[in-house]
Amino acid sequence: MSDLPVKVIHVESGKILTGTDAPKAGQLEAWLEMNPGYEVAPR
């Protein structure tokens, strides 16, 4: 599992989470399930 943060964006508000606020790569799927409305942000 990776500890690198994955940049995500809230589709409706446009809020972007990066760095320490962003979910870790190894926890991404579970985090997205618990935080509806967020998607992986385009690079």
Rank of each mutant, 00 (worst) to 15 (best):
S2T: 14
A41I: 11
E39Y: 05
I9G: 09
G14P: 05
Q27F: 01
K7R: 12
K24T: 06
E29M: 03
E12H: 07
V8C: 03
D21S: 08
L32E: 05
L28D: 07
D3Q: 04
K7L: 02
S2I: 07
H10W: 00
S2A: 01
P42L: 04
A22R: 02
V11F: 03
I9N: 10
E39C: 08
D21R: 08
A30V: 06
E39A: 12
G26D: 15
I9L: 05
G26H: 15
M1V: 06
I9Y: 06
R43C: 08
K24L: 06
L28N: 05
L32N: 03
P5L: 06
L28I: 11
W31M: 04
N35K: 01
R43M: 12
A41D: 05
L32F: 03
M34Q: 14
E33S: 08
V11R: 14
W31A: 08
E33Q: 12
E39I: 11
E33K: 15
P42K: 15
S2M: 14
L4E: 15
A30D: 13
E12W: 03
V8Y: 03
Q27I: 02
V8R: 05
K7M: 10
M1W: 00
G26W: 11
W31V: 07
L32K: 10
P5E: 15
P42A: 11
A41Y: 13
V11N: 10
V11C: 09
E33N: 08
E12M: 10
V40N: 01
V11G: 09
E12R: 11
N35M: 13
V11W: 05
E39V: 11
Y38I: 03
A22I: 09
P23M: 01
N35C: 01
R43W: 04
E39R: 09
V40G: 04
V8A: 07
E29H: 06
P23G: 01
P42R: 09
Y38F: 11
P23S: 00
N35E: 01
G37F: 04
E33H: 11
L4C: 14
A30L: 07
V8W: 01
K7Q: 11
R43A: 13
D3P: 03
A30T: 09
E29T: 07
V11I: 15
V40D: 06
M34R: 13
V6K: 13
P36D: 07
Q27T: 15
P36Q: 03
E29L: 05
D21N: 10
M1A: 06
E12K: 14
L28V: 10
H10L: 00
D3W: 01
Q27W: 01
W31I: 06
P23D: 01
P23L: 00
G26M: 08
R43G: 13
P36K: 04
